[in-house]
């Protein structure tokens, strides 16, 4: 593995506090994920691909914006792996790069309706933008 990729994976893992090696590959995270259908890569794959060093497809995938951070996978994992934290860490690696914000203020008028609470906007900006 080339050095920069190795460093990136190390960063992602350290920042998340997740140890992918704890995973016993039972798939309960993906068996419980409410956003499964919207994802190209699923929670157990995030853990497995980070463990095997295959991070590029995850960085490019829209899946990192589909996680709802509902923590169902975190709470129900029998091994305490916490996939959602790993997904968040990968997303941060992407949006912390200059010009990589997933959401910009210009996009907002198109997306909202009358009833939408402020909470939706602040949360989305916190998740998608740096």
């Amino acid at each position: 593995m080339e050095k920069s990729k190795e460093n990136l994976i190390q960063d992602v893992v350290r920042r998340s506090g997740v140890n992918p090696r704890k995973c016993m590959k039972c798939g309960k995270c993906s068996g419980t994920c409410p956003a499964y259908d919207e994802m190209e890569y699923h929670p157990h794959q995030f853990v497995y691909m980070i463990e095997t060093g295959d991070i590029e497809p995850l960085l490019k995938s829209k899946s990192i914006y589909k996680c709802l951070t509902c923590f169902a996978c975190v709470d129900r994992c029998p091994r305490g792996v916490e996939p959602a934290k790993l997904i968040e860490s990968i997303r941060l690696s992407v949006i912390r790069e200059q010009g990589n914000n997933h959401l910009t203020p210009q996009m907002i008028p198109e997306l909202i309706d009358e009833e939408m609470p402020q909470q939706a906007l602040v949360t989305a900006f916190r998740k998608y933008t740096k």
Partner: peptide, 11 residues
């Protein structure tokens, strides 16, 4: 179970 939360904004 999650209602979808902030995903409502873009999806």
């Amino acid at each position: 179970e999650c209602c979808g939360g902030y995903i409502a904004l873009e999806d």
